[in-house]
Design a protein around this nucleic acid. Sequence first.
RNA 1: UAAGUAGUUCAUCUUAUCGCUCUUAGUUUUAUUAAGAGAGGAAAGUCCGGACACCAAAGUGAAUCGUAGCGGCUAACAGCCGUCAUUUUGCUAGAAAUAGUAGAAUAGGACAAGUGCAACAGAAAGAAUGUACAGGUAAUGCUGUAGUGAAACCGGGUAAACUCUACGAGGUGCAAUGUUACGUAUAUUGGAGUGUCGAUUUAUCGACAAAGAGUCUCACGCUCAAAUCUUCAAGGGGUAAACAGCUAAAGUUAAUUAGUAAUAAUUAACGCAGAUAAAUGAUAAGAAUCAAUUUUAUUGAUACAGAAUCCGGCUUACAGAACUACUUUAUAU
Length: 126
Amino acid sequence: MQYTYSKDEKLKSRKLIKELFKNGKAATVYPLRMIYLKKEHFGKYPVKAGVSVSKRNLKHAVDRNRIKRLMREAYRLNKHLLYTNLEEQYIIMFIYLAKEKETFKLIENKMKDLMEKFLRREQKTA
RNA sequence: UAAGUAGUUCAUCUUAUCGCUCUUAGUUUUAUUAAGAGAGGAAAGUCCGGACACCAAAGUGAAUCGUAGCGGCUAACAGCCGUCAUUUUGCUAGAAAUAGUAGAAUAGGACAAGUGCAACAGAAAGAAUGUACAGGUAAUGCUGUAGUGAAACCGGGUAAACUCUACGAGGUGCAAUGUUACGUAUAUUGGAGUGUCGAUUUAUCGACAAAGAGUCUCACGCUCAAAUCUUCAAGGGGUAAACAGCUAAAGUUAAUUAGUAAUAAUUAACGCAGAUAAAUGAUAAGAAUCAAUUUUAUUGAUACAGAAUCCGGCUUACAGAACUACUUUAUAU
């Protein structure tokens, strides 16, 4: 299993992001919220994912960068949960809801919980 | 030695594992391998000044805005340096006025164009001239003194009051702008494209007048048209895709020379981030510094803050460390 997170695995197209926010469904494990949508994106990987932190919650760019890096790191180390269990292609956006900075350990644990919650829900509907 | 003020420099470090962006080279066909590079003194606020780009000349005047002793530096500036003046603080001299010296501050042109404003006190704060006393005249606040006040007729004070003077400023910003691709895009619908005169090639040309559009506001000036066209309005769609712009630059470091200095010149070395839902990171261990507890180990903290076209400034934020200068206090000689 590769623990990479290269350009092809990132959600970059503005068009896709617009569509995601319009039609996507949400799952929350505080302080993280996941917005996801089943969508053929013709990439090589099963998932395209991005992260986002609201300017309203964290005022300084330094703090937002820090949280985004932690979230990306947590996703990178745990994405195999999604890759091994998904058969169709998805686009996902992770959003940080808290107004304070959190540690990496907490974010990683919540990320795992969130992914499991997401998988359970998708397998039920499938 | 300690504390304070000002200035300058730096602003945690090392190793391992797992990653990200760019460049180069290879493998070889779209993935991977190797090497190298990868945030700041403020990258911040967006407050000034430029470079660069476009606006169909990028013009003149007005308005508006800005600057304001003098000289210099600079691509330019509201910045910096020097200097004069004024105000002010300390010290020294002196009986004092004041002078000398060290530092700090200053939106520091003009009230001899016009208009406005001036608490309290005072008759009166600007059309001056009341009262008392004295002097003087043909006559009169004509003259002096008293009284209030910071200031009472003096070319009075006041321009971070209007105003005047001198000088300066066209506007919009890299989502500028150019190329390519996608897209039925010169889509579609509606309105307007006038009048007079002259020439002839008889449907074109030229001149004049009026209207329209553009030129940030106003005026002038300038520019813009003949039907697969121009302009105005309505109105729907689409990309926010790729490349260029995009980082070699008023560059950084060092030395020498010129200059009181800001700064400039010469020589040598270096070649120093270019992302775009946006790279420059995460985790673990150790070291360093500080604080607390306790007593020699544990716990906690390590600031302010993250490039977005690029430079020069200003302003604001900032744990701590080092150096320099000055001031104060204590100790020693």
